[in-house]
Every structure is written in structure tokens, then in C-alpha cells.
């Protein structure tokens, strides 16, 4: 889902920078007032975790393996705004270390994976879990649904960006200059492979991580700090 440079035309990627800059600015303001001096280490470790989560291979039926993006669980646990920054930093590292995702398309990638995913993930989880107790299975199910839908939404947003390219950029002879397929092809192509593939995996992994956190230290969940006993109790997690 990382869009490289050259897939999107300048109108689209510049528009995405214009959308993303206020989002980053607001997230930064909000976090520095909430987290104060804790901001840098917390976000750095959260971003490092978002980066590392992709290294965990999950065994799949048929002997293949897969991994998750983890953006939804980051949103659920750190809250959507911290999720925005943590994912942005992780995406920046992927672009600057491996060329995974372009530099001009960076804002577009951040919109799909660092805004759409943590936000939809967090709010879907919040909405479905309602007032269920922290350790209830309803919450784990909501996390799974949040993981599933958030990835589908991110895929839809990516497919939409691809699909509008032939409308925006064509040569005089009507030949598309960037991503060549219109919405009628790009959107279903992105959606189908996620609805029946990656999103299921994302849902499973989100639920598994959530289940573990629930069992081990439910006080880590964003917005549930009232019942938090001691933030350092993470130490006692079984190794």
C-alpha cells in the first residue's frame, strides 16, 4: 500500500501535503500539551514498535506467512493522535531507509496509513465496544472489526487516489500519464484483495495483540487510565 513516487500526479500529491500539514501540526500541538517531556521517548518507542510489528510473521494455513500493518492497534492503544505521529515516523523511516513509499507521495501514504487507519480503528473499536468491561471478549471482537474495517478503508482511499489519476492527468492524445486505471478498475482491485485477504489477517492479528494486552495489562489502553494501577506494571509481563 506504500505508493512510490511516479504513481500519482502532482495535483494529487500536493493536495495531500496541503491536507496533511495541518493534521501533523494539530497532532503535534495536542501531544505536546498532553505528554509534555514524555512525548519524544513515548512516540519514538511507539514508532519503533510500529516499524518492528511488520517483522512478525504469522503462520497461515497452507504454510505461507503474513504480517499486519498494526496501525489500528496503535490507534486503539495510544489513541488516534499519537497513532498519527507514531505511524508517520515509522513511514518516514521506511521511505528514508528502504525507499518504501516515495518522498513526494509521503503525505498521501501518511493519509492512508497514519490517519485513516488509526482514526477509523480507534473510533470503530470505541463505538462497538461501548461500555463493555475492559476484559470482555466484546472488546476483543471490536478490535478485530476495527482492524478489518480500518484496513479496508485505507485500501479504498489508496484505490481512490489511484483511480482519479486518469481523470486528472492525460496527455493530449488521451493517454494516462500516471496510474493508468480509472476508478472502475483501481478501486475494486484494491478493495477485493483487502476485503478477502489482508484485512482478515489484520483483524486476526489485531485481536490477538488486543487479547494479550487485555490479559496482561488492560490499563495500557488509551482513555482507560482511570483504573490504571501503575504504568510500569508492564515489567511483570511474562517473558
Amino acid at each position: 500500500m506504500h505508493i512510490p513516487d511516479g504513481y500519482l500526479g502532482p495535483y494529487t500529491y500536493i493536495a495531500m501535503w496541503i491536507i496533511m500539514i495541518p493534521i501533523w501540526y494539530y497532532a503535534g500541538r495536542k501531544l505536546s500539551s498532553e505528554l509534555k517531556s514524555r512525548q519524544v521517548p513515548l512516540l519514538a518507542l511507539a514508532a519503533a514498535f510500529s516499524f518492528v510489528i511488520m517483522m512478525f510473521n504469522l503462520p497461515l494455513p497452507g504454510g505461507s506467512v503474513g504480517h499486519a500493518t498494526g496501525a489500528a492497534i496503535i490507534g486503539i492503544i495510544l489513541g488516534p493522535w499519537a497513532g498519527v505521529i507514531a505511524m508517520t515516523v515509522a513511514l518516514a523511516l521506511q521511505a528514508l531507509m528502504f525507499g518504501d513509499g516515495g518522498i513526494w507521495t509521503f503525505a498521501a501514504n501518511c493519509f492512508n496509513m497514519a490517519v485513516v487507519m488509526p482514526f477509523s480503528g480507534y473510533y470503530i473499536y470505541k463505538y462497538i465496544s461501548g461500555k463493555a468491561p475492559l476484559t470482555s471478549s466484546r472488546r476483543a471482537v471490536s478490535a478485530a472489526i476495527a482492524g478489518y474495517i480500518s484496513l479496508v478503508l485505507a485500501a479504498a482511499s489508496t484505490g481512490f487516489m489511484f483511480g482519479i489519476q486518469p481523470l486528472l492527468h492525460q496527455s493530449a492524445e488521451g493517454i494516462p500519464l500516471y496510474m493508468p486505471y480509472g476508478l472502475n478498475i483501481a478501486l475494486p482491485a484494491m478493495l477485493l484483495q483487502h476485503i478477502f485477504g489482508y484485512s482478515i489477517l489484520e483483524a486476526v492479528i489485531t485481536a490477538l495483540i488486543f487479547g494479550y494486552i487485555q490479559k496482561t495489562d488492560a490499563s495500557l489502553l488509551y482513555g482507560e487510565k482511570i483504573i490504571a494501577v501503575d504504568r510500569n506494571s508492564g515489567k511483570s509481563a511474562p517473558a
Binding site: 494479550y212 508492564g234 509481563a237
Partner: peptide, 14 residues
């Protein structure tokens, strides 16, 4: 695997 990811998350936060 899910547990190890969760554990890594808890450890990174602490």
C-alpha cells in the same frame, strides 16, 4: 505470535 507482538508493545511502552 500475537502474544509476542503484544509483549513487545508493552515492553516498548515501559
Amino acid at each position: 505470535v500475537g502474544g509476542r507482538i503484544g509483549y513487545t508493545l508493552i515492553r516498548s511502552l515501559s
